[in-house]
């Protein structure tokens, strides 16, 4: 249990996917302009991350021990098709949910956070539950970073940011400051 809590906290805060591992930077820098969108994208990403964790556990357990060289390809193919399948299912079963989150799904599948999660979970040798908790933590961490960033950006739009630095340069520096603030979480619950 302690271990699971640490995995969650670590992925959420200490080793935040975006701010410490640089995963999911494209949406983080690109889509974080509006709070509403950021939050929904975060939720959708969390959802895909969970699916990824399940898929990669399955692959790691049953397929890859026999064919380790297929790791990358099989991750990509299996995750992408599972997500696509679920996307179709959601579209059919719950159009409202699809409208809220589903439109982001195709975008997310090519996001490096997804593949990153699969690879990290494999490298760390996580089992099923651990992988699931890892995915939830990573997703929550991604959502947290997205939402904070969006709030800051919406506010910064009203600031007198010099023209030269507006845009990506400024977003990177904001991310840097955020990342610096998140350094405060280092060592959280690891000394216990």
């Amino acid at each position: 249990m302690d271990n699971l809590i640490w995995i969650f906290i670590s992925a959420l805060l200490v080793n935040n996917f975006v701010l410490a591992y640089f995963l999911g930077l494209c949406p983080f820098l690109g889509v974080s302009g509006r709070l509403e969108t950021s939050f929904r994208l975060g939720l959708a990403t969390t959802f895909v991350l969970v699916i990824t964790a399940i898929c990669s556990w399955f692959l790691n357990t049953y397929i890859l021990p026999h064919a380790p060289y297929l790791r990358l390809i099989s991750f990509i193919v299996v995750i992408a098709s599972t997500v696509q399948f679920i996307e179709m299912a959601i579209k059919k079963l719950s159009p409202a949910l699809f409208k809220a989150l589903g439109i982001f799904l195709p975008l997310i599948t090519t996001n490096c956070a997804i593949l990153g999660l699969a690879i990290f979970a494999t490298n760390k040798g996580y089992g099923f539950t651990e992988g699931l908790v890892f995915a939830l933590g990573a997703g929550a961490g991604f959502t947290l970073a997205m939402v904070l960033m969006a709030g800051i950006r919406e506010e910064a739009e009203l600031s007198d940011i010099p023209a030269l630095i507006q845009g990506t340069a400024m977003n990177l520096i904001i991310a840097g400051i955020l990342s610096m603030a998140f350094m405060g979480f280092a060592g959280l619950f690891s000394s216990g």
Binding site: W6, S10, V14, N15, K124, A186, G187, S190
Partner: peptide, 8 residues
């Protein structure tokens, strides 16, 4: 293995 200051 176990948690350190940053990561495992």
């Amino acid at each position: 293995a176990g948690p350190g200051f940053q990561d495992t």
